[in-house]
Computed example of a mutant assay.
Amino acid sequence: MDLEKEIQAGRLLTGTDQKMVEGSSYQLRLGNVYYDLSENGKRIELTEGEKVLIKPGHRVVLITEEEFNVPANMVSRVVSKGSLFSIGLSPVATYADPGFSGNLGIVTQNFSNRYVELSQGEPIAKADFSKLSKPATKLYNGQHGFQAEIWPIKTHLQKTHSEVANDRRVFSEQEEALALLPEATRVTIRRLENRVLWLLAMLVLAISLNGIALYLVETKSHLLDDFYGVLGSLIASGIVAVLALVVGFLGRTK
């Protein structure tokens, strides 16, 4: 099959640019609509010149500028551009069934810690077309989410921690949250938590010792007793300060 001739004739794809034909595939471009699944499937229509903005950790559906028109005897396989992997977007592999007609939605997630901007018309995926040995009998049926102005999300499959807390495979919310982080980050957070606990304990100790010293000062009228009370308070504060320095030093060297 001559892909370039098919596209020139307006078959397989419409709204195309001949420059996007590359070897045996066509480079699909980003349209002016996308959905942010991390914000309850919010539909965002871009103004002229406005870019798609994918926030860190967010999952989005990018809608292609081109429209598919897959005949009954063909199938199209779609993979995202390798250049998008390097900036933190998850890889995509999907397909358009025989009979599919309309713009294609490509789901991807930003795994980086930076905001990703994509310009309208930028190539985001490649589509190739394969001819079947015989026409499919069960063709794609139904409106695509883009045409219906919704994106069908099976939200009933998504659960909060409280809804699955009794499952034996689910740990505390804090442990589950830490499990999502890299090991080095988890270790650092645990060390910080332990250091805070030690510092709080020493703070309580300092307050207690100073309280005892002040009590001795208030209940004794002799000058020597006053001196010993103040000295005890200073010694208690010094001990706590030294312990805090030791804990901080050990925390840095581990």
Rank of each mutant, 00 (worst) to 15 (best):
A148L: 07
I124K: 01
W151M: 06
G248F: 12
A184H: 13
E218G: 15
N69D: 12
D97K: 07
D167M: 09
N141P: 08
F171G: 12
E6I: 07
R252Q: 14
T160W: 08
M1G: 14
L234I: 08
R252P: 06
H161M: 05
Q174M: 11
V242H: 10
V21T: 05
L205Y: 12
T137S: 15
L139A: 06
F146C: 06
E66F: 00
M1R: 15
V196T: 12
P56G: 03
Y215H: 10
E66N: 01
A244W: 10
I63H: 04
N40D: 12
H161L: 05
A125Q: 04
L197A: 13
L209M: 11
K42F: 00
M20K: 09
G102S: 01
D17G: 08
R29H: 03
I212E: 08
V230S: 06
V107C: 07
K55S: 07
S162Q: 14
S25P: 04
A96Y: 04
A184F: 13
V217H: 15
A136M: 07
G211K: 02
Q174W: 10
S162E: 10
V170A: 04
L28Q: 01
I106K: 03
V242C: 09
M202K: 13
Q109V: 06
H144A: 15
Y215S: 12
K254H: 11
S172I: 04
A148G: 07
I63P: 01
H58V: 03
S119L: 06
R43D: 02
S76D: 02
G211M: 03
G238M: 05
N32P: 03
V52K: 00
L243C: 15
Q120L: 03
R168N: 14
A165T: 10
T253R: 15
K138M: 10
Q8I: 12
V79W: 11
E22R: 15
E39M: 08
F129C: 04
V75P: 05
Y228L: 14
R114L: 11
T160S: 13
R190Y: 10
G15R: 02
H156V: 11
L180V: 08
H58A: 05
M20I: 04
T253H: 13
L118A: 01
E67T: 08
E6F: 07
G82T: 09
A244E: 08
A125K: 03
S83F: 03
A136Q: 08
V242D: 09
L243M: 13
L89V: 01
Q27K: 12
K19E: 11
N166A: 13
A136R: 07
I207C: 11
G102D: 02
Y140H: 09
L214A: 15
A93F: 13
